[in-house]
Write a protein that binds this DNA or RNA. Structure first.
Lengths: 248, 248
DNA sequence: CGAAGTCTTGAAGAGCTTCAATACGCGTGG
DNA sequence: CCACGCGTATTGAAGCTCTTCAAGACTTCG
């Protein structure tokens, strides 16, 4: 992918997301495009950043799935965020500097890095764009909050239903939902590590959702068979995704 | 408290926190002080903001304890953040606009509000200060992440030990730790709602910490009797609080 | 076709919740 | 100053959710 393209198709998901929250001016878009390094491809299973790293760049996910996670001493893994195309995976490392968790590629991913020096320049020249980037990190935080609510107070099945609703809405937002069908090439183990569940119980909860005819999962294709029932079960309310276009 | 004071003692905790992460210039400090409205006092139990609100101001906590929480349909409450003096409790509502959770006063609190219009001006005139405010919201997010890790993958006792370690470090950072003693005027119910536990189990886990001579709690006084043992039990590592003074 | 990873199932048990009752502590009014 | 009352803390007991261990089946891929 070339830097000097007038239009950078891989960035569509990213700008689609931004435009959902507020209007982006052409010069802001240009500033972002100019700040990005040429895209790279990383294989499934590789880590984009590790706990303790001080990256110096932030990573924009252009395609594929990535996740942020922590490993505990007993080997347990908790996934604290799932990222899809258009997500600025570790933009928070720009103010934070040091990573307090790792980011891994759940699938083959296409990424583009943005040097923190370029981000500093953006904060100096584009206040509104700065607020928009700030916003993106805060929506990530809102999602983590929602996960924490689920982990603390929702049962496994409700939590899982909620997660599928969330993923569906987020994919929809970047134009990647196909008729209540989502492409989710992850293992049940990965799913369990997002939900704070053992692989065995993850499997059983999944079966319960299937037997209630709310969901099917074959290969990497998840179908929400009854979206409304799923939302009701999950008490899903997408307010925390802040998908409102307004001046920020 | 008067706006035109040269020195605003109630802001000490806030500036202490900021200075821990990077150097703050006098004009940045002045800009913050000028942006704040006169302080207010709210009684214990009152809500500072509610889910669904669109505040128009962000609230700086000058004294007391506040918490962010969500209520579920079955009446369950999950507390997703605990805030102490010096915390910019709902600074995230500046880019987010709409609250996706509520903020309550755990004790009598002293607060000062900052209009979002003033925050916009700060983003236009003080890029570095903007990054510092951004940083504060991201540290809150890092804490939520840590809580999510605990809720998903740590046992109740480890989670509780971890929380006490965290509160201690955070109070220390604003000069409010008294010799491994922290003033925590909250109920076991509140504690349970942070840890995702029932009141009964919260009580039993607390007793276990007491019987292991790691902690005492009488009235509102919590003593960390063996801080090192507590940290070891919790696998506590304060990296996620990002208490490093460096250019941001 | 074999091997490695993933999914599925059964069974036992740990961790936590729920319900219910009792004890404690603190502020208020008599 | 004491008694009362209400919120909070504590205890016991039963049961549910989820984990762990272990084995077998399925899938995918070299």
């Amino acid at each position: 992918m070339q830097r000097n393209d007038r239009h950078w198709p891989l960035l569509d998901a990213f700008f689609l997301r931004l435009e959902q929250h507020d209007r982006i001016m052409p010069e802001e878009r240009a500033a972002l495009e100019a700040a990005l390094l040429p895209s790279e491809i990383l294989p499934e299973g590789s880590d984009l950043v590790n706990e303790g790293d001080r990256p110096g760049v932030s990573t924009l996910l252009l395609d594929g799935l990535a996740f942020r996670y922590r490993l505990l001493q007993n080997g347990a893994r908790q996934i604290v965020a799932l990222h899809i195309a258009g997500d600025f995976v570790d933009l928070h490392s720009f103010p934070l500097k040091e990573m307090d968790h790792s980011v891994g590629a759940l699938t083959r991913v296409v990424i583009a890095k943005m040097p923190h020096a370029a981000l500093i320049a953006i904060t100096e020249q584009f206040p509104h764009l700065t607020r928009m980037l700030w916003l993106l990190t805060l929506i990530d935080a809102a999602i983590t909050r929602e996960w924490a609510v689920g982990l603390g107070r929702r049962s496994a099945i409700v939590r899982m239903a909620h997660l599928f609703c969330e993923i569906h809405v987020r994919l929809e937002a970047i134009g990647r939902d196909g008729n209540d069908t989502i492409d989710l090439p992850i293992t049940q183990q990965d799913l369990g590590d997002m939900l704070g569940l053992s692989p065995v119980h993850t499997n059983r909860v999944l079966q319960e959702l299937r037997s209630r005819a709310l969901l099917s999962w074959q290969g990497s294709t998840v179908k929400l068979l009854d979206r409304e029932a799923l939302r009701k079960l999950a008490e899903f309310d997408d307010i925390y995704l802040h998908r409102v276009r307004e001046p920020r």
